[in-house]
Amino acid sequence: MSAEPASARVRPRITGFFTDSTLCIGCKACEVACKEWNEIPSDGFVWSGLSYDNTVSLGHSTWRHVKFVERLPVHGAGGFSSPDVSWEFSSDVCKHCEVAGCLEACPTGSIVRTEFGGVYIQPDVCNGCGYCVVSCPFGVVDRRPHDRAFKCTFCYDRQKAGMVPACAKACPTESIRFGELEVLRREAAARLVELRAGGVEDAVVYDPRDTSVGGIHAFFLVRGDPKMYNLPERPEVPTVRLRPAWRSAGAAAAAILTAAIGAFLFADGK
């Protein structure tokens, strides 16, 4: 908004997703559109019994995933409406972290940050080492058995062609909003105020910016505790553990070397 240096202005805008779950009707059009566009294979035909969610989580072959948070009220026998039945839907996706665990961890440089700020796996570079899989604090990216790692591309191909990502395009209720990240963040704040004013007290914006993840480019507005949606309270990018770990490694290496030299010098007193 304020005057930016010219160089900043020519950079492509940083885009994001604002998924407003209060508008989501659980139609799964996003999930299907993503699969169609990206030609993702099926994820298996298994009925889960978990409300209407049969794909269960994001994975190597589900890059958009709609969660069905069905809360059981305390049920009496018979009787009238259970006023506290609630059924929330929320469309999950790769968070495109500001500081992305997967990207940091990737040894091949396959995972890159695109000019739109998204986190993108170059499929021809990935070697399937699986290290990103254990490095994502949100459990998003996954390796297809005997194959490489896959996750949401943020529709890099579509964005490059000036198109809206397939999932956002398909969403009938604008629950998935796509646009410039900072604009979306302001919209989310405004929406939160609006919802709270309308009596929706339990609405929260999930965008962990005060942890090492430093904010996510795909953030969410949900009702109730984000943990019900399997969104961790304080996700940390694994690289915060590098320092203590390497410190320990260095100390241990030094110890081995010292001990070995010491042992050979003194223990084997020839």
Binding site: K28, E31, V32, K35, E36, P41, S42, D43, G44, F45, V46, W47, Y52, N54, T55
Partner: peptide, 9 residues
């Protein structure tokens, strides 16, 4: 498949 897997039974 994209639809069938969503409600398989």
């Amino acid at each position: 498949s994209h639809l069938a897997e969503l409600q398989p039974e």
